[in-house]
Structures are given as structure tokens and as C-alpha cells.
Design a protein around this nucleic acid. Structure first.
Lengths: 253, 253
DNA sequence: GCCATAAATTGATTTTTGTCAACATGTTTT
DNA sequence: AAAACATGTTGACAAAAATCAATTTATGGC
């Protein structure tokens, strides 16, 4: 089931071929590098990864209240996570794209606090966290890997989330989030300037604290001003410079 | 300089006595527990903590661009962190109170991306991160400790930051932030209902993406409605239930 | 304790954003 | 391919928040 080459890193992989959903192609580099420095696989390694669970659009990788046992890696597809407020309203807590991790906020509590639902058909791998932790007792590589995973998550949260909290206008929020999304796609080796928004305008609005109509209007304005091209959920960034300006500065007029 | 009892955990400590600024009294439990399970101190332990740097109001624990070498623990006092935008405007990225950690977002990049400045006279301890990492090669306790530190930070970021991003009104933002502050004080063994806001209304507004006048008006409204009592920067939460309601639900009228 | 300065409050007004509603465009199912 | 449904766009208006400005209240330095 698990063969050695699942762990090795391959730069020139063909991403669009659906046969290649194995981790060495999924661009979750932090994890793919795992073991690459240690030669052959140990017995422990074989147990720590559960591969390629297929999750159809609308299905749940995990639910709030589930025990946390593994770090989820998204091989392909996209997932949103959300929490339910007492009054029944939902608060979307994040969008997770191909190559990213989910559910790390539960590593210490050992219990998921959010629901995760697939926005499109998605493949995930699961790294069994307790096994990875155990592996740390013997493997230097495993230790460094887990530090890197956790540290990256902290840096990611700070970088992505802070500008959104402090944004003084809806324009700033949306521009900042589009740019951070763009960066995230780039980091996974995908196009920086052209990508698919897998979430609805409503979801995006919920996440950013904006009405869906406001999101829609802002998109229209960005298109009018030539900043982006938009066709349904496919977006292209045409003027990154000016978009960056909008993300930090107050609205022009 | 570093004695064994710096590491041991003492529950009934006297917090208000200024003589007791040692870690066993500073309530950064994650760190104070360190070594408590391993008997006496090893030689390595002695090198990893730099203790009780005094930082006066307005001074900088670290600056953006500084190399990251240690995790900062706030023993007493309060610190804000902020980033400078290109246009010269500042974005406050967080407030850090007694017992909390700062600067963890730089663990992987090894370079600080924010300035940190003391809001009042503050004592910090520094855990030398590279030494702590090395210690992980030999110490089980150190391994678990570092996982817990990083994991707690991730959970903290998610819990505190997400409701602020998704908040649909200024009221929600401020109520949510006051409650999260309250929780943070509680976790450090301080009063949940009564505490000092070490930051100005302007700082709070900058952080939350609100005008300082809006923050001020909301405070006044909360006082009028009996939710809180406010005297300068000293706040008391009188009606936690209703405040929690405001944090999740849309404004009442 | 007093003074100078910084911070906070409050009011009037403008700008931004949310809400409600109608209509258009996409997507999924059959 | 058409129908049914979900999603997205746009306009008119109401509500919320920002800005500008004047005044009051705290704070730090002496």
C-alpha cells in the first residue's frame, strides 16, 4: 500500500494527471520531504500516513467534536472549516487549498472545534499525529518536520489573519485576502495570477465579515478598474501593484 | 543565577509582591512546568533561559528585522506588536499580557517581522529557541513542552482571531475582543471580570480595524447598558452573558 | 500638586456598508 | 437540452461607522 516513493520529493511531477494524486505530487512539501533524508522507510513510517481519502463535494473530512487523531493534508481540491454559533449562525473560519494542512488548531486539545466540509471533490492524506509524535523520540527528521509544520502554521495564521482584522474597509479586506490566496497558490507551485475561487461570494463574505452583496460589488469594481478579470469563479489578477495598494491604503474614492 | 526553583511550579504564589517576578510566579505555566518532571537541572537547562530583562514603557523587546533567537515570555506588564505598511501607517498585530508568549511567528523564518514595544514597564524572560530545540534530542519533557507551546499558539490564534475577522459589526468585534482578553487574564490566574486595558482606544481601534471614536462610543454604550464599568483604563465586566450575546449576534438596535 | 500634553468623549456630518428586492447568470439533475 | 435550483449582480434605501471638530478628562514630568 505505502511504497517508498510516496515520501520522496519529485519536482517535475505532472499535476493534472489524475493518476498522480500520491503525496509526491501534491505539493505539501513539508510532508513530502519527510524521510527523504533518512534513506529507506522504517516500519513506523508505514503506519503514520493514511492516504488519499476521497471526499466528495459537501462531505466532511471531520466534524466538530470528533477526536483529533491526524493532521489532514489536502492533496487536491478545497475545504472550508466553520463553527456554529449558539444562535445557529455559522462562522467560516478558513478556506484550505491543495497542499495545505487543516485541523492543526486541535493538536493540543485533541478535539476538533470546527466542521470541515469539501467545497469540491477533494483528496486528503492523514498524518497520524500521535505516531508522528512517537517517531520524534527516535528520528531527528521527524522532530524537525513537526516543528516546521507547527511553526509554519503559526506564521501563516499571523500573516493571513492579521491584515484582515485590522483592515479599515471592505475593499482592503477583499484585496488583502485575494493577495494572500494568490501567494498560497504560488507557494504550492500553481499560478499566482490565475486561479479558481472554490468558495461562493456568500462564503467569502461570511469569512471576511462582509455582506455577499458587498463582495459582489467589490468584485465588479475591481473588474471595472482593470485590477482583475473574473469569469464565474475563475479569477485572474491583472494589476497586482494596484491591488496591493488597495490592500493597505484607504479606498481611493 | 538560575536556580532549581525557577522551574518548579508553585500554585499559591503571591503575585502582587514585586519581589516575586521569578518564573514560578509569572504564570506562564507551559514554561514553568519545564523540568518539573525530570528532577534536577541539567547543564543545558542553565543556558536556555535568560531571565527578567526589564523593559520600560516605550522600549522594544525586539524590532522588525532582528534575528529570532528566543521565545519571549512576559513575566509582568504588557506589550504590543505592530508592522509598518509601505505608506508609513502602522498595523497593530497583537497585544500580549503577563504570562503570554511573543514572537513565535518567527520560529521558522528566524527573523522578526514585527516591532514589539512595551505598553508599560515590563519584565520578560527569554527561552533560547535553538538550545531548546537541541535539548529535544535528549529530553522527552522538552519535546512535549515545545509541541505544547507551538500547539497552544495555533489554538490561541484561531480562537482569538477568527471571531474578529468574521464579526459583522463594530459591536461584535469589541465585545468579542473584550471577552477573549478576559479569558486570557483568567487563564493566567488573574481576575476574569476586572482588569486593566494597557492599550489606548486608538491602539485598540487600530488593531480591530475601527476608528478610535467608534471604540470610545461603544465603550460608552456598554457602560450605559450596564454591561461594563469603566474608569479610565480599568474595566469591569458586569454582564458577561449579554456581552457574549453581543459578540455573536447582530446589534440589538 | 500643578502644568503641559496626550488621550478620551461627544456631537454633527459624510461616507461606507448592509438590507431588501428584482433580475440575470450558472450548475446540476433528469 | 430543458427545467429546477442555486448563485451572483445590481439598484434603492436604511443603518452603521468614519471623519472632522470641539471639549473634557487623564497622565507624566517637574
Amino acid at each position: 500500500m505505502l511504497t517508498e516513493d510516496h515520501f520522496t520529493l519529485s519536482e517535475g511531477a505532472e499535476h493534472n494527471n489524475p493518476r498522480f494524486l500520491a503525496c509526491k505530487y501534491c505539493r505539501a512539501l513539508s510532508l513530502c520531504e519527510f524521510s527523504s533524508g533518512e534513506g529507506r522507510q522504517s516500519k513506523n513510517d508505514r503506519k503514520i500516513i493514511k492516504r488519499h481519502r476521497k471526499i466528495r463535494r459537501g462531505e466532511f473530512p471531520y466534524r466538530a467534536g470528533d477526536p483529533f487523531h491526524s493532521i489532514c493534508v489536502i492533496c487536491s481540491g478545497a475545504v472550508k472549516t466553520y463553527a456554529l454559533n449558539r444562535d445557529g449562525s455559522v462562522q467560516i473560519t478558513g478556506f484550505h487549498i491543495s497542499g495545505e494542512l487543516m485541523g492543526l488548531n486541535a493538536v493540543n486539545t485533541k478535539q476538533h472545534t470546527c466542521d470541515a466540509v469539501a467545497l469540491e471533490n477533494t483528496y486528503i492524506c492523514e498524518i497520524l499525529y500521535s505516531h508522528l509524535q512517537e517517531l520524534c523520540d527516535e528520528s531527528f527528521i521527524a522532530r524537525r518536520l513537526i516543528f516546521r509544520i507547527l511553526g509554519d502554521q503559526i506564521a501563516h495564521d499571523q500573516m493571513v489573519l492579521m491584515p484582515l482584522i485590522g483592515a479599515k474597509s471592505a475593499t482592503q479586506k477583499l484585496a488583502a485576502y485575494l493577495l494572500s490566496l494568490s501567494q498560497r497558490f504560488e507557494r504550492r507551485g500553481l499560478s499566482t495570477d490565475e486561479f479558481r475561487l472554490s468558495m461562493s461570494r456568500g462564503d467569502l463574505g461570511n469569512y471576511l465579515g462582509l455582506a455577499k452583496e458587498t463582495v459582489s460589488r467589490l468584485f465588479s469594481r475591481f473588474v471595472d478598474e482593470g485590477l482583475i478579470t473574473l469569469k464565474a469563479r475563475h479569477i485572474r489578477i491583472n494589476d497586482r501593484k494596484r491591488l496591493t495598494l488597495m490592500a493597505t491604503k484607504a479606498p481611493s474614492v
